[in-house]
Amino acid sequence: MTEKLFYTDPKVFEWTTEITGVFEHDDLYYVTLKETAFYPEGGGQPADLGWIGNYEVIDCIKKDEEVFHVLNTKPEEKVVDCKIDHYRRIDHTQHHSGQHLLSAICLDLFGINTLSFHLSNETATIDLDVSSLSDEQLNKIEKVVNDHIVANHKVNVFYINRDEAEKYDIRKIPEGIDRLRIVQIENIEYNACAGTHVNSTSEIGLLKLLKTEKMKGKIRLYFICGLRLLKDYTEKHQLIADLSKLLTTGQDLLLNQVEKLKEANKEKERNYTTLFNQYADLLANQIIKEQGKEKVYQIFQELTIKELGIVSQKLLENEAQLIVLGTKNENKLLITQSGNLSIDCGKIVKEEANKYNGKGGGNAKRAQCSFTNEQSLEQFVLHIKEKINI
Rank of each mutant, 00 (worst) to 15 (best):
Q278P: 05
K385V: 09
E18D: 10
Y29N: 10
L255D: 08
N139W: 05
A284M: 01
L71K: 10
E35G: 03
H69K: 08
K214T: 12
R220W: 11
G195M: 13
L206G: 08
T16I: 14
R220P: 15
A364Q: 15
G358F: 04
L102F: 12
N54K: 14
L109A: 08
F6R: 09
T336N: 13
A192T: 06
N187R: 10
E203C: 02
Y39M: 11
C60P: 02
L28F: 03
L315R: 02
W15Q: 06
F380Y: 15
E122R: 06
D242Y: 05
L227E: 14
A37L: 13
I288S: 01
K355P: 01
R88H: 14
T16N: 15
S116Q: 05
E330G: 00
V57H: 06
Q368P: 01
Q375S: 11
H118G: 03
Y190N: 05
I310W: 05
K359W: 05
R181Q: 00
H148Y: 15
A194L: 10
D169Y: 00
R366C: 12
L275E: 06
T327E: 01
G111E: 03
G98M: 10
K365T: 13
C60M: 03
N113A: 12
Y87I: 14
T304Q: 01
R366K: 15
V80E: 15
D147P: 07
E267Y: 05
L49F: 12
I105M: 07
L49W: 07
Y30C: 08
I343R: 09
L283N: 01
K214V: 08
H25Q: 09
F276T: 02
Y39A: 09
N156M: 09
K350Q: 13
G195L: 12
S312C: 11
G309E: 14
I19Q: 11
A194S: 15
N161W: 02
L316I: 09
D108L: 06
D135S: 14
K365H: 09
K74R: 14
I224D: 10
K295I: 06
L315I: 06
T196Q: 08
K293V: 06
T73L: 14
Q251Y: 01
I288C: 00
Y222D: 12
N363E: 04
K260H: 11
M1D: 10
V258P: 02
E290D: 14
I126H: 13
